[in-house]
Amino acid sequence: MLKVSGNALKSHSADKDELDVQAEADRVVLTEHAPVGVVINREMEVVQFRGRTTPYLAPPPGTPSLNVLKLARNGLAIELRALITAATKRASLPGKRISRSPRTGTSGCSTCQ
Results as ranks from 00 to 15, higher is better:
42 R>F: 00
98 I>N: 00
61 P>C: 02
14 A>W: 12
73 R>A: 09
83 L>V: 08
68 V>E: 00
112 C>N: 09
91 A>M: 10
25 A>L: 11
69 L>C: 03
57 L>Y: 02
39 V>H: 07
10 K>C: 02
48 Q>V: 13
90 R>P: 01
12 H>E: 07
10 K>F: 15
94 P>S: 06
31 T>N: 08
79 E>N: 10
109 C>K: 03
103 R>W: 10
48 Q>C: 10
91 A>Y: 01
98 I>Y: 10
42 R>K: 04
104 T>I: 04
48 Q>H: 01
83 L>M: 05
43 E>H: 01
54 T>Y: 15
71 L>Y: 02
24 E>C: 02
1 M>I: 14
58 A>D: 15
23 A>V: 06
68 V>C: 02
75 G>Q: 03
24 E>F: 00
6 G>E: 07
69 L>G: 04
76 L>D: 05
59 P>H: 12
45 E>A: 05
48 Q>R: 01
82 A>F: 06
44 M>D: 14
42 R>H: 03
69 L>H: 06
28 V>N: 09
70 K>W: 05
7 N>D: 11
96 K>P: 00
67 N>G: 06
85 T>A: 05
67 N>A: 03
47 V>A: 00
52 R>Y: 14
15 D>L: 09
89 K>R: 07
4 V>R: 15
92 S>G: 09
21 V>A: 14
99 S>K: 06
9 L>F: 14
24 E>K: 11
1 M>L: 10
107 S>R: 11
79 E>T: 01
94 P>R: 00
3 K>M: 09
42 R>N: 08
3 K>G: 01
11 S>P: 12
41 N>F: 03
104 T>G: 12
33 H>V: 07
79 E>F: 11
99 S>W: 09
